[in-house]
Each structure stands twice: as structure tokens, then as C-alpha cells.
Design a protein around this nucleic acid. Structure first.
Length: 962
RNA sequence: GCCGGCGUACUCCAACUGGCAGAGAGACGGCGCUUAGAACGCCGACAGUGCGGGUUCGAAUCCCGCCGCCGGCACCA
């Protein structure tokens, strides 16, 4: 053990010179903590055995226990390190993991790093430091910060997404996805080779109806490529010339500028890699029901996927033989009330159907004063294009212009005018709608502006005085020669009209999603290279597995080519495209040596986090991304639960990843499941959103942030800094807010155990709460009192006695044991801590002078271990045990001490407590009632009345109703 | 605007899910110990549960209506 006692921390913690030498304080804690961390590491205390392979260990004390796979959302190792808010969840899962491990479970818990990403690359651009250097330095810093917290992680299993051995498998999984297609009939992904075989055998015919045999190789490949789950597409993306890269939606601010650098961002159509996540939309929605996740997260995913059921209906355009406007509607039952149509300004049919001249009688309101429809439409489209997405959303007043064209309502042959209006969005449905003002408020507003007819097709309830009626009710005004919906409810009417439309070839029932395919490429250096090359025909070729990993090349300049910030027409040029000798390769991919060019985009940061939980299971496997047997052991479905999809037993992280990360990971996992690589259908069986630690920040009169640590509260509740009044605000902890507190400072001033205990006792895991440095002392005092109860502060000797504890103490002990089991298991670490404090308070009161009996001291120490593992280990060894307590034992509650001999009952009269009686614990209801009615105060309260009723709740109270 | 969550003491949080509103921490006040302070120990005060109704023998807990805060979605056809 280290003997260094003169760290600067000593002075800072105000430990007086005359304090006893073995008082528990920062200095002693530091010695204990370092010693135990070293020992855990040296002995591999937290190494977790696998069921098979090199890390199988049947002799491990937990090898036969039930497995539990616990996980934290892994962090991005930023340059500024951890603040006290970050480890809240990590400590919470560690406490649970330690508890489960002590009670015999085989607990897998480790930590990794989501280490690709823009900050390291930006730093490289500014300083020339290689992103790998920056990243690895930051990871080192994080590891040191996490180590000092005493987290019981299996450090052998830690991975970083930037490890070449890790991203080799990220690339391998990409190829699995690339080499698959979604078979709608089988409702699963299948290898692309099986699709090719179907085409070749003629059991499947290409959409165009051509004969496979007559197609040349390039034509065939184009068709096959169009089926792949990872495919190339021309898609509108956020192109930021100032940064020289495309950006994810979440990297663009609400006013259309880049979060970094504040450059303008343009919507541009560019050739990009996409992932066909939409093929899984149905299963991604349906399987939410099988997950133990917070409802809020499930709701967010459902919203994001946006499944809606309805019909596509075709409206023939008047004057054209073969032009239909296809709309999507969730309310086909209201078709008879469709009195006009609207196309989005970007809709491709607009040009085709807009005539050269206004039809007779077109009024000023519809024509917007333009001399002809083409001019009017052009003007309106130009105006719409100038508006940002945001403007279009906020501008609620319905604008639009008549195209001059008419379409035919298929149910009644009515000619209805076609408008262009920006309240219809090109990105949803078909970009065109049938407008039913009677049943849709948006359409009603537009109809009112343009004087369009309104026909109700659902009878509103009696007394309805609104405009559009969107509720249920009987259909009206909805009949033609062949069908009548009148009188049917909304659901029946939908079914009836959809069947009619489909029989007539005018429409079909469809399911529509808001979810779009996932844009999967970025013009960055610091990401996973695609395992793809381009051939002379300009077609992509997935590399064979033996070509992996495709390593990032060394390049001189990490920055993408940047342009004038407002140069919207510029083309992205990824940094990798400049590594000419890397890009150009000669390979023999089974067709003889040929010349290829490598894909120069890189994958988005989400890629690694889509599967890292699988790599933790088997990180040393060089032949597979994970051994199937090991995956089945840790993540396979539990046959004891009905319809269990399998997955990580508990995944803890912030709610900010509710949609993107968790949706992408579910998608990848399902592909791997379909292809038979994993036995679990879902990655995360149970999800838990931890709260955040927030902090106060203070601004002075100029609005500048002042150092929060130096602010003092005055008597009337105001705050001052250096004598000047400052204003307090509550929110995040951050460098710029000058309110950061780091775990390093806390470990130095109090020790890791105190810090852990403080964070856990401020509330349950899912609650956000303010940080308060001055409250940390409370946790330290508790540990100090426990220490003093068990250890002589002047000699350091153990003070426990071999005496038998009294019965009252045993009652208090076993009540604490029972409570602590339940609290840890439920992640209520705050109440577990309270129960331990309560127990120790009892010991202080009872045994302060004599020393605590071993039979109570030992269980107390063991129960503290999940929260404060270092001091617990130290006390356990002072109590004479040579080994670690990490694998147990953990005390079990003895029923005998949970039931008291006598019980005090409150006696209520008419619901108010009037008296108390003490009766034997086994008193039956009649005895209780008799005792209560005999009580003087009860008799007095009744004042001679006969009680009307007496309610006896065994174990709780007696209520006399008079 | 729609959907969801939460309002308990000066602060953060408990309350066996309908049964005595208080476990724990901080802050606060007092006492002890001290030359003094710090530290430590002991003791104490502080809310009737955001507001208004209802159900019940009994409501922080269940129901209805408001108010406030937080989050998600938002012209999604």
C-alpha cells in the first residue's frame, strides 16, 4: 500500500493537524482507493467468464450464476474530460452490477468509447495533430478518470470504435448489409446471392419485365444493386460548403446553419450511400411492444417511424390520356367530400399539367393576378423555394395558386380544380393530396381563403359548432350508382370504399411511413472507410472478407476541401479522395486483376455504436465479430419469458439517444438476426433513462458568466460574486458557463467512495437533480462514522467485538438487509444508502463505547460494498478476511427478526389519529378491535356513541367510524 | 395546438403503490467538547403534499377540472 500521505489534498480538506491519524478523510480514502484499484486490476477481480472460448472459466465463483448483461451508453471521449454529471449512470450501473455479482450472478459490465467523430478531426485541421493521437490521448484520460471511481468493469473487454480490429468488423457488418436484400414475402433480409439465383432461374422477373438471360452483366448488376439494403442513391442532403462536408440533420441549426462554424447549409442532391431502414419500419414499430423500455422512448420511436394506414387513390387529370395524380390519404371514406386537389410546389407533375392559359372564369383570387397559369405557378414556386423549411412550418396562413388544371374524382366523376400550395410537403406521402375541407381543418382554412366548396361527408354530433369535423360519425353525402357509404361509421366506410377503389383499379390500401432511408456517408476523414471499390463501369463492388480491414490511409491534410461559404453549387471533395495512391488499387476480385478506385466517403459516427454491445461479448475473437454460442449465452431470448426478443439485460443512458442511435442499432441487429448471425431479435431488452446532474450558473451585470464556485448566497436569498450581485440560472454544466466540477476534484477532496455515495444518495437513478458541492460532506461524514464505529481512529486497529448483538439490533439489521436487497435491485440506490445510514446510526447509539459486534459489522460492510467498494474492501480485510468481497457473500434477511413481538397500532377515529395501542404481533382482528374500543381516548372521542363500523387493517392501523 | 411526465419542509429527496406525511443528506437553531475556531457528538424547529372538486371509513397516492415546470411531436394528408 502506498504511504504517501502528504498530497496537496490534505491541506485543502481542512483536516486539522491534531486530527487522529486514522480518521477517515480524503488522504486515507486516497490510500485505500488506490491500493484496492491496483489489487482489483492485478487479480483480475472483475474478469467475467464466457461460456466457451479462451475466456471460459468454469472455476470462476460466478460461472454458474444467472448471467446479467449490464451496459452504459458508451461516451465520446471529448477533449475536456468528464465532469461530475457524466458518471452518474456509470456509477448507478456499477452499484447494481456489484450487488448482483455479490449475490452470485455472472455480471458482464464493461466500458468502451465511441471515438470516431468530428471534434478530433477539427482539432487535427487546426493543429495538424493526427486524429488518432488526439482520440487515444482523450481515451487515456477518460480511462484514468473512470478508474479512480472504482468501477467494476472487465477491462479486457473494453473497445473503442476507432480500433482497427473493431472497425474491421464494422466494415464486415456493412458488407453483410450490402450483400443482402429485403424479401417482402418472407419479411426478412436474405443474402443477395439468393436473389441473383432467383433471377437466373426465372422464378423472379425484374420489375421492367425483361428476360434475365437477355440482360448484359452491367444491366443485371444495376438491378441487383437496386435491391441491396445498402445502396447508392441521389438524395437531397445538408451540404455545407464552408465546412466542405455534408452534415447530419442534427448538426444543422434551426435557422439552417452549421452548428460548427455557423456556415450556411444548403439542400443539395448528391450521390450518397443509403441504408434501407424503411424495409424494417413495420418490425421496428411492432417489436417495440416486446421491449421493456420507457413509454416516452417508445412513443418517440413510433412518432419518428410515423406509420399510417390508408389508401393511394388516383385522380385522372382532365385533358390528358394517361396522367393521374396519385394521393395518399388516411381518410378514403371522405372521398365524396374532396372538392379540390393540391400538389406540393416541388411536385414533378406541376409542369406537365399546367396549361398555357387560364380556364374561363378564373378569378383574381385563384390566379394571384398573373396573366397565365405558368407565370402564376412559376412565381409561387420561386417564392416557396426561398422559404426555409422553418418558414414553411411557421407560416400557418394557407397560400397557394390555381394551376389551371382539373382532375376527376373517381367516386363521382366530379371535376375538381388542382392547386399548388406549400402546405403540402413533397417529402411525405406522394406530395399530393385530395382536399376534404369538411373533415380536415387545413383544407377548410384553404377552402375558406379560396372560396372552394365544402361538403360534409361525416355527420358531426349534435351541437358541434366547429369547422372541419374530424371525429367519428355516420357517413353522409357519400353515394354513387354502385356504392353508398351513407350511414356507415368511419372504419367501415374506409374498408368499403377501399375495396371499391381497388376493384375499379382507382386505388389501393397502403401503409405509409414518415421514416426515410438512412443517409450513411460523410465527407470526413475520421470515420470508418467503406469496404467498397468502384470498377470501370462506375458500379460499386463490395470487397471480400479477406480484404478487411480497409484501413484509413495517412494523409497530409485532414480537412475536406472547403469553399466560399455561400457557394451552393460546389461539390464535396472528401479528404480521402486526395490520398491518390490509396484510392487507386489493382485487385483480383475473382474476375482477374483489374483497376479499381476506392470509395472515399466514410461512415457516420453512428456505425460503431450500432453493434459495440456485441463486441464486448467476445472482443478477442479474430475469426468472427462474436462467437454465436457466446452471443446466445449473454443475449439470447429467455424461454421463461413469453415472446422475449432477447438482448442486453439493462441498457442505461440519457434520453437524448431515444431515436437515432437506438433505432439504428435495432435495425442493424435485425439484419444480423435475419441473416442468422445472432440469436436475439433486439439489441436492448430493457432500457433505462438516467436523469442528469444539472448545475447553477451565475451571470454578472454584463451577462458574463462568473466562476460559480466563488459565488456566495446572502441572507435575503440573493447571490453575489466578489461583492457584486449576480443572477442565477439552472441548467447544464459546461466550460463556457464556468460551473464545471470534475470527478477528479471530488476524488481529491473527499475520495471516490464519498463521491459515489453522494451521487447515488441525491435521488433515484431516473431523476435529474442539481449538483451541490457543499452537500458532499454529508456522504463523507457517514463513511467517517462507520469507520469510527469499526476502527480505532488513533491506532487503526479493528474495534469489533465477538459479543452477540442484542435482539433490537438484530431487528434493525435484518430490516435493513431486506430493504437494501429490494432497493439495489430496483436502482433505488438513494434509499439503500438511507437504510445503511439508519443502521449505522443505531450502531453508534448502541455500541459507541463498547465496539460493534462482528455479527452486525460484517453485514453492514458487505451491504455498503456496492455503493462504496473501496472502504468496504478495506474494512472487510480489517475484519480479518483475506480475499475480496466482490463476489460475495451478501447478507440475507432472517425472517425471524422481521416480525416484531409487539406492534404499535395507531387508532383513528373518523380517519384522524386519536390514540395508539401496543398489542402482541399475533393479535387477531377481534382482539385488535376490542383493544381499540377499550382505549380511553377512543372512548372519549366517541363520547358515548356506538361505533358504526370498525376497520381493522392488520399490520397497519385501526379506524373507528363513529 | 397535440401527446407524455412531474409538482411533498428552505433545498435535494422518502413514504411498503389507498392506511400514522418523514428514511436519509444539506442548510438552519441550540447544547456538549474546545482558549477559540474547525471537526466531532447530542438535541431541535420547519411542510399537511401546486389549486379546486369527487370517490372512500381513510387520498401525497385513484378520478375530474384548472395552474406551473420539463420533454417529445407539430401543415404527416
Amino acid at each position: 500500500m502506498s504511504t504517501d500521505t502528504t498530497t496537496p489534498a490534505d491541506a485543502a480538506t481542512a483536516r486539522p493537524a491534531d486530527a487522529p491519524p486514522f480518521r477517515y478523510g480524503a488522504a486515507l480514502a486516497a490510500r485505500i482507493e488506490r491500493a484496492w484499484q491496483d489489487r482489483w486490476e492485478a487479480e483480475g477481480t472483475f474478469h467475467v467468464p464466457n461460456p466457451t472460448g479462451a475466456w471460459a472459466d468454469p472455476a470462476h465463483p460466478n460461472a454458474d450464476g444467472d448471467k446479467v448483461y449490464l451496459m452504459d451508453m458508451f461516451p465520446y471521449p471529448s477533449g475536456s474530460g468528464l465532469h461530475v454529471g457524466h458518471p452518474l449512470g456509470f456509477i448507478g450501473t456499477d452499484v447494481l452490477g456489484r450487488y448482483l455479482r455479490m449475490t452470485g450472478r455472472n455480471v458482464l459490465h464493461t466500458m468502451g468509447f465511441d471515438a470516431f467523430g468530428l471534434p478530433a478531426e477539427q482539432y487535427a485541421v487546426q493543429t495538424g495533430t493526427h486524429p488518432r493521437k488526439t482520440t487515444e490521448d482523450n481515451i487515456e484520460r477518460y480511462r484514468a478518470q473512470l478508474r479512480q471511481l472504482g468501477l467494476g468493469h472487465d477491462d479486457r473487454r473494453s473497445v473503442a470504435t476507432t480500433d482497427i480490429e473493431f472497425y474491421r468488423w464494422t466494415q464486415w457488418i456493412f458488407l453483410q448489409i450490402y450483400n443482402s436484400w429485403y424479401d417482402e414475402a418472407a419479411a426478412k433480409a436474405r443474402p443477395i446471392a439468393e436473389l441473383e439465383a432467383e433471377f437466373a432461374a426465372g422464378t423472379r422477373v425484374p420489375a421492367g419485365g425483361q428476360s434475365w438471360a437477355e440482360l448484359d452483366d452491367v444491366q443485371r448488376r444495376r438491378i441487383v444493386d437496386s435491391f441491396r439494403l445498402a445502396y447508392i442513391s441521389e438524395a437531397p442532403v445538408n451540404w455545407c460548403p464552408g465546412l466542405g462536408t455534408v452534415l447530419a440533420n442534427e448538426e444543422v441549426t434551426a435557422d439552417g446553419r452549421s452548428e460548427r462554424g455557423n456556415f450556411p447549409v444548403f439542400r443539395r442532391s448528391l450521390k450518397q450511400w443509403m441504408m434501407r431502414i424503411t424495409a424494417y419500419a413495420d418490425r421496428l414499430v411492432a417489436d417495440l411492444d416486446r421491449l421493456d423500455w420507457p413509454d416516452s422512448v417508445k412513443t418517440m420511436q413510433r412518432n419518428w417511424i410515423g406509420r399510417s394506414q390508408g389508401a393511394r387513390v388516383r385522380f385522372p387529370v382532365e385533358g390528358f390520356d394517361d396522367v393521374d395524380i396519385e394521393v395518399f390519404t388516411t381518410r378514403p371514406d371522405t372521398l365524396f367530400g374532396a372538392t379540390y386537389m393540391v400538389l406540393a410546389p416541388e411536385h414533378p407533375l406541376v409542369d406537365a399539367i399546367t396549361p398555357a392559359e387560364w380556364p374561363d372564369g378564373t378569378g383574381e383570387r385563384w390566379s394571384a393576378g398573373a396573366t397565365d397559369p405558368r407565370a402564376a405557378v412559376a412565381e409561387y414556386r420561386a417564392a416557396a423555394a426561398r422559404k426555409s423549411d422553418l418558414d414553411r412550418q411557421e407560416y400557418k396562413d394557407k397560400t397557394g395558386v390555381f394551376t389551371g388544371a382539373f382532375a376527376t374524382n373517381p367516386v363521382n366523376g366530379a371535376l375538381i380544380p388542382v392547386f399548388v400550395a406549400d402546405y403540402v410537403l413533397m417529402g411525405y406521402g406522394t406530395g399530393a393530396i385530395m382536399a376534404v375541407p369538411g373533415q380536415d381543418q387545413r383544407d377548410w382554412d384553404f377552402a375558406a381563403n379560396f372560396g372552394l366548396p365544402i361538403i360534409r361527408t361525416v355527420q358531426p354530433f349534435e351541437g358541434f359548432d366547429g369547422e372541419a369535423f374530424t371525429g367519428d360519425g355516420p357517413a353522409i353525402n357519400s353515394a354513387n350508382d354502385e356504392i353508398s357509404l351513407d350511414g356507415l361509421g368511419v372504419a367501415e366506410a374506409k374498408a368499403a370504399i377501399t375495396e371499391w377503389l381497388s376493384a375499379r383499379g382507382a386505388g389501393d390500401a397502403v401503409v405509409q411511413y414518415k421514416l426515410r432511408d438512412w443517409l450513411f456517408s460523410r465527407q470526413r476523414y475520421w470515420g470508418e472507410p467503406f469496404p467498397v471499390v468502384w470498377d470501370a463501369d462506375g458500379l460499386p463492388v463490395g470487397l471480400p472478407d479477406d480484404q478487411l480491414p480497409v484501413e484509413l490511409p495517412e494523409i497530409a491534410d485532414y480537412s475536406p476541401k472547403t469553399f466560399a461559404p455561400d457557394d451552393a453549387d460546389s461539390e464535396p471533395e472528401p479528404p480521402l479522395s486526395r490520398a491518390e495512391e490509396w484510392v487507386a488499387v489493382d485487385l483480383d476480385l475473382g474476375t482477374g486483376p483489374r483497376h479499381y478506385r476506392r470509395e472515399t466517403n466514410t461512415m457516420p459516427q453512428w456505425a460503431g455504436s450500432c453493434w459495440y454491445y456485441l463486441r464486448y461479448l467476445d472482443p478477442d475473437n479474430h475469426d468472427r465479430f462474436v462467437d454465436p454460442e457466446i452471443e446466445r449465452y449473454w443475449m439470447g431470448p429467455d424461454p421463461a419469458r413469453s415472446d422475449d426478443p432477447g438482448g442486453v439485460d439493462l441498457y442505461v443512458g440519457g434520453v437524448e439517444h431515444a431515436v437515432l442511435h437506438l433505432l439504428y442499432a435495432r435495425f442493424w441487429h435485425k439484419v444480423l438476426y435475419d441473416l442468422g448471425h445472432v440469436s436475439s431479435e433486439e439489441p436492448f431488452r430493457r432500457l433505462f433513462n438516467q436523469g442528469y446532474i444539472q448545475a447553477f450558473a451565475y451571470t454578472d451585470a454584463r451577462g458574463a458568466y462568473v466562476t460559480a464556485e466563488e459565488v456566495v448566497e446572502d441572507e435575503d436569498g440573493g447571490f453575489t460574486w466578489n461583492g457584486q450581485p449576480v443572477r442565477r440560472q439552472y441548467g447544464k454544466m459546461g466550460k463556457s458557463l464556468r460551473n464545471v466540477v470534475t470527478p477528479d476534484e471530488m476524488c481529491e477532496r473527499y475520495g471516490a467512495d464519498t463521491f459515489r455515495l453522494y451521487e447515488m444518495s441525491t435521488g433515484p437513478m431516473d431523476v435529474s437533480r442539481p449538483w451541490s458541492t457543499r452537500d458532499v460532506i454529508g456522504a463523507q461524514r457517514f463513511l467517517q462514522r462507520v469507520w469510527r464505529n469499526l476502527v480505532d481512529e488513533t491506532t487503526g486497529a479493528c474495534r469489533v467485538t465477538e459479543a452477540e448483538p442484542d435482539v433490537e439490533t438484530l431487528r434493525v439489521l435484518h430490516k435493513a438487509i431486506a430493504g437494501v436487497h429490494a432497493d439495489y435491485a430496483a436502482l433505488h440506490h438513494n434509499t439503500a444508502a438511507a437504510k445503511l445510514i439508519e443502521l449505522n446510526n443505531h450502531l453508534t447509539k448502541t455500541y459507541a463505547g463498547t465496539g460493534v459486534p462482528r455479527a452486525v459489522a460484517e453485514p453492514l460492510v458487505l451491504m455498503m460494498a456496492p455503493l462504496t467498494p473501496h472502504i468496504a474492501e478495506e474494512l472487510w480485510s480489517l475484519l480479518g478476511h483475506s480475499g475480496t468481497l466482490a463476489h460475495g457473500p451478501f447478507p440475507a434477511a432472517d425472517e425471524r427478526y422481521l416480525v416484531a413481538e409487539t406492534v404499535e397500532y395507531p387508532i383513528q377515529v373518523n380517519g384522524k389519529v386519536r390514540s395508539r395501542i401496543t398489542v402482541p404481533a399475533d393479535a387477531d382482528q377481534d382482539q385488535l378491535q376490542a383493544a381499540a374500543l377499550a382505549d380511553d381516548k377512543v372512548v372519549a372521542a366517541l363520547a358515548g356513541r356506538e361505533p358504526r363500523k370498525v376497520i381493522v387493517v392488520p399490520g397497519r392501523l385501526v379506524n373507528v367510524v363513529g
